[in-house]
């Protein structure tokens, strides 16, 4: 579907609409019409980051989990196509991980006063960045495609099962700044965005979907490129 021109056109129109809506919907103290967003004291225009930053972080996670799942499939079938999928998913995941880290960090400077605060979610994305880095460092130091595929798949699985421990460990150690952190009004709920007004929620989920489709499209392009490279 995404391969087709229609799919590509739809995706670009969708994302354009999301970006225009996210940047241009006016923020007023008391929203009256459907296109007005509430003015949140202390956040003001900075609240718009949630429409772009959270989808990036989400894609990072999707890419990591799919790299791991393709890794499991490689170990089951020994089909190197899955390894190719795994490495492409991880490559895109790294790009989105850097984007999420940088956007979040710039925003943190203006809202929380410093680029980096070791808040639990900042720490988690940093760990994810380290895992991606380690994954590629491991891959580049193994000769032999089969061995490289098996070992990097094994590493991604080990990382995948130990990373969830942060969910239990973090709240015991540090208090957070992100919504949904310990001490926050909403408790430790993973989706703190539910406090958003309905029109903002629509843009948010549209952005989430748009970014996910962007990832799927980029993934299919990269897969075609690496298949072509393989044949030459």
């Amino acid at each position: 579907m995404i391969r087709s021109t229609t799919g590509k056109a739809l995706l670009s129109i969708w994302l354009t609409l999301v970006i225009v809506a996210g940047l241009a919907m006016p923020m007023v103290p008391v929203p009256r019409t459907w296109y007005e967003l509430p003015w949140i004291p202390g956040l003001e225009q900075k609240a718009r980051i949630i429409l772009f930053h959270v989808p990036m972080a989400w894609v990072t996670l999707v890419a990591f989990i799919s790299a791991m799942v393709y890794g499991i499939q490689f170990l089951k079938t020994k089909n190197l196509d899955y390894d190719l999928k795994s490495v492409n998913a991880a490559g895109l995941g790294t790009v989105f991980c850097i984007l999420a880290t940088v956007t979040g960090s710039i925003w943190a400077k203006f809202n929380w006063g410093s680029f980096w605060n070791w808040d639990p979610r900042e720490t988690s994305i940093f760990i994810l960045l380290l895992i991606y880095g380690a994954y590629f460092a491991l891959r580049s130091s193994i000769e032999g495609a089969e061995k490289r595929a098996a070992l990097s798949a094994a590493y991604s699985i080990i990382a995948g099962v130990t990373a969830p421990f942060f969910i239990f460990v973090m709240p015991r150690i540090m208090s957070g700044l992100h919504p949904g952190a310990k001490g926050d009004e909403g408790g430790a709920a993973p989706v703190a965005q539910l406090h958003m007004p309905p029109n903002m929620l629509v843009v948010f989920f549209a952005s989430l979907l748009g970014f996910t489709m962007l990832y799927v499209w980029l993934f299919s392009v990269r897969m075609r490129i690496s298949k072509l490279e393989e044949h030459h």
Partner: peptide
Amino acid sequence: LAFPIMLP
């Protein structure tokens, strides 16, 4: 390799 795995 060990650091992200052992960090928790």
